[in-house]
Amino acid sequence: MGGSQSVRKLSVDNENAIQVSQEALDRIQAQLNAKQAEQPTPRPQYAPPPYYDTHKQNEYAAEEAYWARRIENLKRAHEKINSGMHLEYQKTLKEANDLFDLVQADKVVNKLPPCQQEKGKMLECYSSNPDKSLLCSVLVNEFNDCVCRSRIAAVSASS
């Protein structure tokens, strides 16, 4: 009796089952869809909590105004700092450009070889006296002296 479990199977044949046509199923489905469309979807409504009274609203408004003023003050301070930095930048840029122009002008002056006038006189003398080069010795000495002076000036300027 209690040693093994028995398994029972039960089957019921329902000969009185109702068969519904496809047209009837479609009509029922259409009616269900129409009812669902008629029912409006409930909108969530926000109700402020009971402790949210005018006193709290005033506190929040005051705090909001405080932070708005604070932000505006910080914006103005930032604009002042930014304009000051911009002016300093422009001033420094102008000074740097002036120095650069000065150095460039100095380089242009120094790029020309020294004693060009003496060199021209000496070469003219040689071309006009091709067979008598000793006649140009005075001009050669002047050119040599000019070159020596230029070298001394360049060395003293760099040190």
Rank of each mutant, 00 (worst) to 15 (best):
E63C: 13
K56C: 00
L32D: 04
C146I: 02
F143S: 09
A30L: 11
L32C: 04
P40L: 04
Q29W: 01
Q90D: 15
M85P: 09
E23A: 15
E88C: 10
N58K: 02
C146N: 02
P50Y: 06
Q117A: 09
A37N: 11
Q104V: 00
A47D: 12
A62D: 14
K107A: 06
C146P: 06
D106E: 15
C115P: 15
Q29V: 12
P44A: 05
H86S: 11
Y60L: 10
E59D: 07
Y46M: 05
Y52C: 06
L112C: 13
D101V: 01
D101M: 03
K107G: 06
P50R: 03
R70C: 07
K121T: 15
L32A: 12
A154Y: 11
W67I: 07
A153P: 01
N110S: 09
T92N: 09
A68T: 04
E118V: 02
K56E: 01
Q36I: 02
Q116E: 08
D106N: 13
Y60A: 07
A62F: 07
A105W: 02
Y51C: 09
D106F: 02
G120K: 04
P49I: 06
Q104G: 04
P44M: 10
A34C: 03
N73K: 00
S133F: 06
A77Q: 14
E64S: 11
A157W: 03
A34M: 09
S156V: 00
N97V: 00
S150N: 12
S128V: 00
A34G: 03
A96I: 04
T92R: 12
S83K: 14
P42H: 02
A68K: 14
Y51D: 10
K119N: 01
E72S: 13
H55T: 12
Q57F: 01
L99M: 09
D98G: 03
L93N: 11
S21C: 08
A61M: 05
G120S: 10
M122H: 05
E124H: 00
P50V: 01
R151N: 15
E118P: 06
Q117T: 08
V109R: 15
